[in-house]
Design a protein around this nucleic acid. Sequence first.
DNA 1: TTACAATTTAACCATTTGGTTAAATTTACT
DNA 2: AGTAAATTTAACCAAATGGTTAAATTGTAA
Lengths: 200, 200
Amino acid sequence: MKEEVTNTEEKILAAAEIIFLQDGYSGSRMQDIADLAGINKALLHYYFRSKDKLFEYIFDKKISLMFPKMEELFDENNSFIEILSGFIENYIKLLMANPFLPLFVITTINKSDREDFLEKLPIFLKRRLMEFYQRDLALGKVRKHHPAQLIISVFGMCVFPFMAKPMLKKMSNMNDEQFQEFMKERIPEVQGYIKLILEP
Amino acid sequence: MKEEVTNTEEKILAAAEIIFLQDGYSGSRMQDIADLAGINKALLHYYFRSKDKLFEYIFDKKISLMFPKMEELFDENNSFIEILSGFIENYIKLLMANPFLPLFVITTINKSDREDFLEKLPIFLKRRLMEFYQRDLALGKVRKHHPAQLIISVFGMCVFPFMAKPMLKKMSNMNDEQFQEFMKERIPEVQGYIKLILEP
DNA sequence: TTACAATTTAACCATTTGGTTAAATTTACT
DNA sequence: AGTAAATTTAACCAAATGGTTAAATTGTAA
């Protein structure tokens, strides 16, 4: 059965994604991944030698999702405020489709014994945002702020609700649909904050 | 040796706190806690019957820290903006002294098999903030916003940097002292955002 | 049909881990 | 000194878990 070599491999990866994203590394069991993929443990190890290998494979995929390129935003014609507004919209939509992403990446990176994962962090995102801010500051198009503080704030306002999702749902008596609605409404809300904060 | 019954118990709790906060439930080992407390596993189980009991003990302590009462803030003479500003200062200072607190509480609550912990969430904090917002909105002292969105934003701006601390340190080339400095500077920064967002 | 790769089955191994037990030892208090 | 509680030591258990192995079975392609 050589037909679709990737078929089983894909099933494994899809299953591993779900398990790892929900339970993290130490909370995940290889048996659970095999079960969810509809295969057995022997075959699982036949495809991926070890839990570590499989996990790193998933993590690599996820970290690039967490820090997307978003090249279309970084157009010289865009103002800093427009770039941030675009980022807010794109990023919240991205996270709505991948709600477990932030907690997964951040808990993984926080594990003291896996600091090697830190090496995979990109830095271009923050640097490019800073450059655009400095440009618009010089043009008098934005108010003066500490740009790193502002960027981390925008990031936090987008990301935090997904990490605190169970808390939010409980405290505001929301179900999953209402949470999605809440996050959709959040896009113009946060964009509004940024305008008020930055516009001179 | 009846002298200080609490002495060993306190050593255990202090050790359990450090281990659990850093590694979470499934990442923590009873042996590590015993080692850090300077005792052996037998004695550890002599004081706390099981890992679950010990963990719940720690979690209860921590969740009340995560959602402090801050009664002094909720004074009728304070404006909503003053209340938020006070909250930002108090909360960031609290987290500076307990940097692992947010990730610990949130990851614990997110574990699907421990949803019982959700029951321990308070709701008074959000409700009281909402009441003060509505009052000041009626008085024309604040701009119109979706108050739940605003409150979660303030929360996120305070909490998120601590959860993403290793990422932030890496991306901005900071050491621990510089991170502390960054968070200290963050207090007036976020307070400034709130004023710009809310003042009519 | 043959040959080879994919898959299953099932037993097995070594290690880790939460937890127990019983006996010995130390400590404090009377 | 005697007693009871605190602590240590060390062996032990059972379950969970990552990983291996070998043999059998199934599917595919030549």
